[in-house]
Write a protein that binds this DNA or RNA. Structure first.
Lengths: 356, 356
DNA sequence: ATGAAAGCGCTAACAG
DNA sequence: CTGTTAGCGCTTTCAT
């Protein structure tokens, strides 16, 4: 019963027309033929059903079903100049704090017929340019940046390409295009105030060394200092800085190092939950009771942070929300919907649990 | 100095030819014009540099550089029927045990000019069909399955599409197409023997309920039983089964539940490191010393498993290797290279650390 | 509401 | 080694 894909078997076309024969599966032409309409009508039935009569719609749908037709989005994208592809750029996928965002971005996009392409920059600049080349080559309808485009050249290239851009996980006053994030400075201030309110007076930090962390740390340190929370003998808030990506081991070594210098430390602000969890493990080894002897606060609110004992106090960022807003921004832009703003501060919240 | 993209300004073409004007950036034609060659020659210079004279190569490269030309892969893919796109299907990205594989797959593909498209099935069957539609629609050069294609319909659809398929994380005797993985049965047997060799005699399991885990558990239970390792009062190896995805909390509740029934248990085999880590945390709360009172062995070898105290003994699967092999398989197939085999068992290894 | 024609940007197929 | 021509499968434009 299968209507075979048919280069009309009759030799009624000049032989030269068959210089290049199609080999893949069914095409829209097959559907159209089967439904007894022109290809463009079949196209309309699939893309703008309202623009076609119910009878035709029905017949086209039936034809599609019958042969199992799946539209070729490469062809569609080429013709319409809308690839329905969105690229997201993250440092690395393993152990990433951006996965929640990626997940919801994927979902949001999928719901509107868009797909996500994931690009990893790694932690060296070298790959950014190559990555950008491949991204632009696919002509995506948008790019979501997690803010780790360090190569100025790549950045400029991207901007020049004219592809809509969403920057995330930060609030800058000079966005390239669209923006959804939160203020790292504000977070530093609030965490310091939070620890102060809990009675902590000798604080320290363990942190990655990326640009945002540095701004966050600065705000934290200044606030803490102003509140008189530096440990005895320290003129600054002590910090243990590790290169990204951070891990539990950073927390373990960090705690050891800090305690060796400032035995009186009574609270540590960590730049990720993983680091905070590492601090907890090392505190266990050292026999330091948490939260009595030492308070710990993380950043990111991993699932497992809730499952530790005691459960970890942390700063929560709603990655899911970032992802869905970023997705909406791009879709709205692609479909030329009128939109109030393309900048959004989603804030953060301190989730207090057992470690403070 | 910028050579503007030029619809020849003279009105020397019939108006009708301009029915559809290009709007995007530069095209290969612009490059060719600038280099003084035919478009196809420019194409060759970029894709098969060896097929072109050094002089032409140089001129084309210069032209590309000058205008910042980036090839349109939608057009290229459409014309050549090779999209250079590969799809990977995983349950979900957050908390996935497949990320290491995805990472290395991405890398392997990128090195050969291919890109990865990530598809998530979620933990309900419902989305699989829709996901497949979008995957096929992009005409990828291959699909990597992590073995969670439950919908028979989707599976059949995929097979019929003719897209090369790599199944991973398992060894079946009846692969659809290509295969790279390891034997879950063998793992069950070896873990039981390992615990036996360490002197454990009252074992239990905490496990997810997916099909592979079930096969693994069966092998573990049979071997353990044969070796006389069921706890007193049990005729079977006790197990605590939780729905996927597993997490630390599964381990915590699992341990409580098992100990309540069989207080003498002296070793637990967990279906993931996260579960094992949860067991460790709960053991700490219950005051059960690890490994003296209770041995724990996980599966997956997460980074953090090494950083716990004591460090976790676990079964390591080389996800990086799975990814690179799967990538190679697809690339070799796409480029029609002669290949010995498209099936590979990469095995696993038990990494003994402090919990056994 | 439907269709014909043209073309998106690129590469396969065949010359020369 | 280089060029001409046709066409990948779809959608835009314009006409009916």
């Amino acid at each position: 019963m299968t209507e075979k894909k048919s280069p009309p078997p009759a030799a009624d076309l000049p032989a030269v027309r068959r210089a290049r024969r199609s080999k893949g599966g069914y095409t829209l032409r097959d559907v159209a033929k089967l439904a007894g309409v022109a290809p463009i009508t079949a196209s309309r039935a699939l893309n703008t059903p309202s623009a076609v009569s119910p009878a035709v719609l029905e017949r086209v749908r039936e034809a599609v079903e019958r042969i199992g037709y799946v539209p070729n989005m490469l062809a569609g994208g080429l013709a319409s100049k809308r690839s329905r592809l969105v690229a997201a750029v993250i440092p690395t996928i393993t152990g990433s704090i951006f996965l929640e965002m990626v997940q919801s971005l994927t979902q949001t996009l999928a719901d509107s017929g868009y797909q996500l392409m994931l690009g990893q920059t790694g932690y060296e600049n070298s790959r950014e340019d190559a990555l950008l080349e491949t991204i632009i080559g696919r002509r995506p309808d948008g790019v979501v940046l997690t803010g780790i485009m360090r190569s100025g050249h790549a950045r400029k290239r991207l901007i020049n390409s004219g592809i809509p851009i969403v920057e995330t996980w930060d609030m800058t006053s000079t966005p390239i295009d669209m923006l959804v994030g939160f203020s790292h400075e504000k977070m530093g201030v609030e965490v310091a105030q939070f620890l102060h309110a809990r009675g902590r007076r000798r604080v320290a930090m363990i942190s990655a060394n990326d640009e945002r962390a540095i701004r966050r740390n600065k705000a934290f340190a200044e606030t803490a200092l102003a509140l008189g929370m530096a440990p005895p003998g320290a003129t600054e808030v002590p910090s243990f800085i590790v290169p990204a990506p951070t891990s539990m081991i950073s927390g373990r070594t960090g705690l050891r190092s800090l305690i060796a210098q400032y035995p009186d430390i009574d609270a540590i602000f960590c730049s990720s939950d993983l680091v905070a969890l590492g601090v907890m493990i090392e505190a266990g080894v050292l026999g330091m009771a948490i939260p009595d002897r030492l308070a710990v606060i993380g950043l990111g609110d991993l699932d497992m942070s809730r499952d530790f004992h005691p459960a970890l106090t942390t700063v929560r960022i709603d990655g899911t929300r970032i992802g869905s807003i970023a997705g909406r921004f791009i879709i709205d832009r692609a479909e030329e919907r009128p939109v109030e703003t393309y900048v959004q501060d989603i804030g953060f919240s301190i989730v207090e649990r057992g470690t403070t």
